[in-house]
Design a protein around this nucleic acid. Structure first.
Lengths: 359, 359
DNA sequence: TTGAAAGCGATACCAT
DNA sequence: ATGGTATCGCTTTCAA
């Protein structure tokens, strides 16, 4: 921790000139009014005589009074806070968060973000937080452990599942159809003439990864191809695993001419491996990703992928949670559309390069 | 909003089986004890007779009682919440957030994230939130408007500045030395033999961008070069601006042989433009970025850049805020080291390509 | 070792 | 139009 900066050098000192904030009582005393009147000036100004309203507002300004939200929240039995719980702090979930936050602002909520790293205990922790009234509701962008929710003695909190349904819980949901999107992605490869198509999958237990794999297999089967003709690696949604999975595929004979990666991270990793092997992406081997993260369009070559409306997903989820909290009638299951985005990592199948030399 | 999914189709229904949670009073009644005892069972279990403690804990479990945090917080005058305020929701700040969150967890806090889009009003809004006791403190990863803080009638909240000092406010700070890091970056280019070095800067008003520019100019001046020999575009920390700024530089004669971009986003944009012009990065033109975001190592070619310890910055900031909140003695200004990471976008200056044909 | 009660700082009901 | 006061659910003296 070197302090080589040219500016002021660190010096140990004490802190905090604690002038504590004015309370409603102090404002009331200042004006010889009751606390009720002060409260009303803020909440129902129309109930006050014009003159007093002005006086109260002036005093509030003068004393720098700001209502204590803890007290207000306790009284009103709401925190105006909601949780969004994601599996990990990745740019992908940041997009979802952005949408949630935007809607939350419109609805008068603030957002706490929690990440679980897919640990069921951590999921439970966040549910407990709303049981403890730290927040009014929760948006789960994660494959919540059904058990955590099923815990009978715990009241089910106001909750919305985003991105993915949650096992047999029949929760309000805003999601995409991963199965269908994977089907579309695979068909894109098929339509390019590829027949030796492999899949590098996500975490074997993540529902989202499972549905993508199913869509992949469904498309191959529909085309009369054997979905199990090639190795089918499955692992984390990371570039590291993408590299590893692709290596496995390259070592296999016959080598695939096209790969559907379960997300963009994996796709990028796969491409790194392909490049390293001296092969050309989009020519020797086609790769399609999933998510359309920012890196997809910036990458070289730009990545063909499935666009997921991440921000919209977050936005809609929060609107729905708001509706749930207001006890409004909602559409329980909303499915947002995905789009195939064709860029440069996929191209027509070529006959010449279907197999590799080593075998 | 098509619902083409194979699963359950959306159907409008009502919600919320509102079983409201048990209160401390109910637990007390259940056992014929006073609420004080229940409270103590959770907070100071050692004060209870062994037998009653067991009975109370059992009842708490049985009733699924969870203390209402709004009530507890009001009583204790703390929310155990802190704010981290960033200029924008980018992957860069997500890293900082990750560090904050980790430390917060260790210290028993939860984190609210706010973004200002560099709007002083929004900065003030978050300061007001802690004045309203929505949160106990605030970490500013943003060039807070000095005015917002200076507002005299508003008590200065417990606050830590991260990444960058804030104008003449003398706040507790955890930062890096942008000036020095920019100096190092420029020297790297200089040591490669470059003499026509340009800078594509960040937002002209962002202190962080200003300090980087100053470091750049200082290095050139120290090498006896004219820092103002080339255009010096300045704009947002985005790839879009990087592309634009680089175009400006390419249109200039003589064209620079090396560019120091104010951050990785700008660097990536610049490289896109360079590629599009048919030039080779690291050969015809060298580019160095700043931040070492994830994309830097994934990019093709991998980006030479300045590594900023983002997560550590967040982590240390939260630890410091915690110390401030506990009224402990702190080192006011901590500077974390940056590192030059040499990858493939910088290379030796070549004589041959110093100027472009169009002029 | 336990209980009674004050109080945290608001809001809103019921009076006047 | 304004005031008095119960209340939200908890923690913590102070007494017993």
């Amino acid at each position: 921790m070197p302090a080589r900066g040219p500016q002021r050098l660190g010096c140990a000192i004490k802190n905090r000139q604690q002038t504590k904030p004015a309370t409603i009582k102090e404002v009331a005393k200042e004006l010889g009014l009751s606390v009720a009147t002060i409260s009303r000036a803020l909440i129902h100004p129309e109930l006050l005589k014009n003159d007093t309203r002005v006086r109260v507002l002036a005093a509030i300004e003068r004393l720098g009074y700001q209502p204590n939200l803890m007290a207000r929240d306790l009284r009103l039995r709401e925190s105006r806070l909601i949780f969004v719980v994601v599996p990990s702090l990745s740019p992908f979930f940041l997009e979802v968060f952005r949408g949630v936050e935007r809607a939350a602002r419109e609805c008068g909520y603030m957002v706490l973000m929690g990440h679980t790293e897919r640990d069921p205990d951590r999921e439970k922790l966040f549910l407990d937080q709303v049981a403890s009234r730290r927040a009014d509701g929760i948006i789960l962008v994660t494959s919540a452990d059904a058990c955590a929710l099923a815990d009978s003695k715990r009241r089910i909190p106001p909750i919305v599942a985003a991105l993915e349904t949650i096992d047999n819980q029949d929760l309000p949901t805003v999601r995409v159809d991963h199965n269908q999107a994977a089907f579309d992605a695979t068909n894109h490869l098929l339509s390019l003439g590829h027949t030796k198509i492999a899949h590098i999958g996500g975490p074997p237990l993540a529902p989202m990864a499972i549905h993508r794999r199913q869509g992949f297999e469904r498309a191959l089967a529909a085309a009369g191809l054997d979905p199990f003709g090639l190795p089918c690696p499955a692992g984390n949604f990371t570039t590291a695993f993408g590299e590893e999975g692709m290596q496995l595929l390259l070592d296999h004979s016959p080598r695939p001419t096209a790969v559907f990666a379960a997300n963009d991270e994996i796709a990028v990793g796969a491409i790194q491996t392909i490049k390293r092997a001296g092969l050309t992406v989009g020519k020797d081997i086609s790769v399609i990703g999933y998510d359309d993260q920012r890196i997809a369009s910036l990458y070289d070559p730009p990545l063909t992928t499935i666009r997921v409306p991440t921000e919209e997903l977050g936005y809609q989820s929060m609107l729905k949670l708001n509706a749930v909290l207001k006890d409004e009638v909602i559409i329980r299951d909303v499915v947002l559309p995905t789009t195939l985005v064709v860029r440069s990592t996929t191209g027509p199948a070529t006959q010449s390069l279907g197999s590799n030399r080593e075998h």
